[in-house]
Design a protein around this nucleic acid. Structure first.
Lengths: 355, 355
DNA sequence: CTGAAAGCGCTAACAG
DNA sequence: CTGTTAGCGCTTTCAG
């Protein structure tokens, strides 16, 4: 099919102009043209300019695939989210994941890598035909094969600490346990004695560690654990878990609530009030969340930010190091979390905190 | 890790196994191996199976880039959002765009195309090195060069109606004008006589048409326009616009509010109440939104869904048709919107509507 | 039924 | 300073 078959009523095939066409047009060789266009080699500025001009005039666009074949890599990375395996494309609905996704794509592109979006719980099929130099696997589920499959295929993986120690796997993570302790200490400092926790049921490294941190804090103080699991992602299930763990106000009711499961802050506040609690008088509330509505609720919602942007940047840094220098030392980085204290978790709101 | 670990700090040369390696191993030729693996040609099943087995055993993975070069295309598409040009990666924070993005990636992958995420307001640089077969441009800004640049580079563009009539450009759209009329008629049917509108300041086809629909409806009834523009995306600016257009309750205050600018439904309701309005008694409210929190507010929020999933599917259908059959007739499709009536826009809430 | 050989479009040794 | 040549890894005529 080198010969374009023109059918009536159909636009003529554009017939892309190739490097060799520019060479023929300018009376130079492919080498010279290539060097001129790429700024390599030692050519006179006059020639360089003449070539550039001709290329522009002819509408020359280098064939990216041919370059990639020559270069041995495509400067293309994959991006998969482990959670949300049932709904393979729902992950963008989570503000955390949305930011992580955007920041990863942004940083990667800055470094010259494009990012393809892959569905959660992806099978080999999806990426087998893609020339991926590496894959970012966000929050893998603990038993998931995806990381193994990728590594077996010789594709470097960038994920969380659950992949630590595997050859070809690199990680960036937050210290979920420490973060929970920080949140609980903050709450304790505000007078809370009976904090409750709502975690997602999905088995990710972060959820496990957060739960462990909560357990340790309670154990140390001899406080009973008050935990509810959100069986699924989404406001409905999470709010149901909140209602279950809060019960009704009373002497034994929680006096603080930590949401590790993602939920809309205004809806959460509404639900808490429906349950008969006043925030922050009866109940201090902290959400692990990147949801921007947290700033606009009344009172504004205290959040623990997982710093998706910093996580993404560190992950891409690793990737570039590995892909371009063949190694990385150490194989992992810890990124700090950021507790943003607002009105929902302080008994006496500080003056001057603006929404 | 089939290979014993080498010196620490130095990555072992991966030494990918190529087609020719499998050929040598099996004692066959590249041709035969290729045919066996791809199911082409006429080979005995015995040979085919033997090759497959050897390939698996050797861990052979075809080089995607080489295939692409041969095939003449990469089965890769780009995805850009025109709006949010200031914050090139903020687009995933919009529920509508998030769903459109996910659905486009999903549908494309179903059809064998991977999707790369490009920043809003992208320059040539970003995609020049990518072998893109086509680019989806969601909600382009009216004066934006991106579509022209793409078309000039010979890359087919799939966008909204604003590109209609251009060679190589195809579109999917909703009828924003008709949608607004439907919303306003619904509101009118519920007794509203003084509807107000909040639109984003960004100049997209959708925003323009929605505004025109509102204007036409008001003109037809001799009703004054009550419009506020949200100067930026985000809950803060949109809510400020809401407050501006509502004023205080009174004889001349709006009795219905249509949000074309995206806002968090629970925050919107809160703001409306702060302004002194009861929903739905004093004010009927409808949001153009895909935000799932709309289901959980009290009262639940009536929304106009723009059907991002259907838009995405239609767009990818076009793309596949164009890329694989070289044309499309007609060059555009209209996708219906869906008005989901809930408690926020009915004077007497219907029984049996569950959150 | 199988294999040798020709390229896809580009870049980088190596000559001239 | 410039051109010839040899591939990157794969698919696909076209002979045998």
């Amino acid at each position: 099919m080198t010969e374009p078959s023109r059918r009536p009523g159909q636009a003529p095939p554009p017939a892309r102009v190739r490097l060799v066409d520019v060479a023929r047009e300018t009376g130079l060789s492919k080498t010279t043209v290539s060097a001129a266009l790429n700024g390599t080699g030692r050519l006179s500025d006059a020639v360089r300019e003449r070539v550039r001009e001709a290329a522009r005039a002819m509408g020359y666009r280098p064939n990216a695939t041919a370059r990639q074949l020559r270069a041995g890599r495509a400067r293309l990375i994959g991006y998969v989210v482990g959670e949300y395996a049932q709904e393979p494309w729902a992950f963008l609905e989570s503000p955390y994941v949305a930011r992580l996704t955007g920041s990863t794509a942004a940083t990667a592109l800055d470094r010259g890598y494009a990012m393809v979006l892959l569905p959660s719980g992806t099978l080999q099929n999806e990426w087998a035909d893609l020339p991926l130099d590496g894959v970012v696997v966000a929050d893998p589920l603990s038993g998931d094969r995806i990381v193994d499959d990728l590594l077996a295929a010789g594709i470097p993986v960038f994920s969380d600490r659950s992949v630590a120690g595997r050859e070809g796997a690199y990680w960036v993570d937050v210290d979920a346990r420490a973060a929970l302790l920080e949140v609980l200490d903050h709450l304790g400092g505000q007078g809370a004695r009976r904090p409750a926790l709502v975690v997602p049921a999905t088995d990710t490294r972060f959820n496990r560690d957060a739960f462990a941190g909560y357990g340790a804090w309670c154990a140390e103080r001899g406080v009973p654990e008050r935990v509810a699991r959100a069986e699924e992602a989404g406001n409905g299930p999470v709010i149901a878990a909140v209602e279950a763990v809060l019960g009704r106000p009373g002497a034994d009711a929680p006096d603080a609530l930590v949401l590790v499961a993602e939920v809309s802050p205004p809806l959460l506040l509404e639900a808490v009030r429906r349950a008969g609690f006043d925030v922050p008088a009866d109940l201090l509330v902290v959400c692990v969340s990147e949801d921007v509505t947290a700033l606009h609720t009344d009172p504004p919602m205290t959040t623990l930010s997982l710093n998706p942007r910093a996580v993404a940047e560190a992950g891409v840094e690793h990737m570039v190091a590995v892909l371009e220098h063949g190694h990385l030392d150490p194989a992992g980085t810890l990124v700090p979390t950021r507790l943003e204290v607002r009105g929902s978790s302080v008994r006496r709101p500080p003056a001057g905190e603006a929404g």
